[in-house]
Computed example of a mutant assay.
Amino acid sequence: MRRLRERKGLALEEAGALVEISKAALSRCEKKERTVKWPAVDVLCCECGASGQVRKTLVELAKGSAHERGSPCTSGRDRRGRHSAPGRWARSHA
């Protein structure tokens, strides 16, 4: 993801704002220190112009991370078990 973001010329702040996560959280995701919701990965791939295969691979990796870790960050639900939605950008461009 970092290579895609940098190739597009997006700063961490800009990319994070697209999916409503902090610069620090996105940085940790790029370093594989934290998982991220797959819809956020999908939005970032689209914004960064990833090819269909790269986008599919990254989204599948994000989905796999959610199932392996059972992480509330990636499961589509928040810590209280409520469904979480992708960021405003994703909703407005769906």
Rank of each mutant, 00 (worst) to 15 (best):
T35N: 10
A85Y: 10
R82F: 01
L10G: 06
A24N: 02
M1N: 12
S75H: 08
P86N: 08
G70T: 04
S22Q: 11
V54M: 11
A50S: 14
P86A: 10
S84K: 05
V54T: 12
H67K: 12
V54I: 14
L12T: 06
E6G: 00
R7D: 15
R28M: 04
G49I: 13
V19A: 10
W38A: 11
D78R: 02
H67F: 08
P39Y: 06
R5D: 08
G9L: 05
G49M: 15
R55H: 10
C45D: 02
V41H: 07
R55P: 02
K23V: 02
D42W: 13
H83F: 12
L10D: 09
V19G: 06
A40N: 11
L58F: 08
R34P: 07
C46A: 06
V43F: 06
V19T: 09
G64H: 10
R7H: 15
L58R: 05
G70F: 04
A62E: 00
A11L: 15
A11K: 14
E30N: 03
K32R: 14
S65D: 13
V54S: 04
K56Q: 12
G87C: 02
D78M: 02
R2A: 13
A40Y: 09
Q53E: 15
G52Y: 11
C73Y: 01
C29Q: 02
G16A: 02
S71N: 01
G87I: 11
K37E: 12
E68S: 07
R82S: 00
S75G: 05
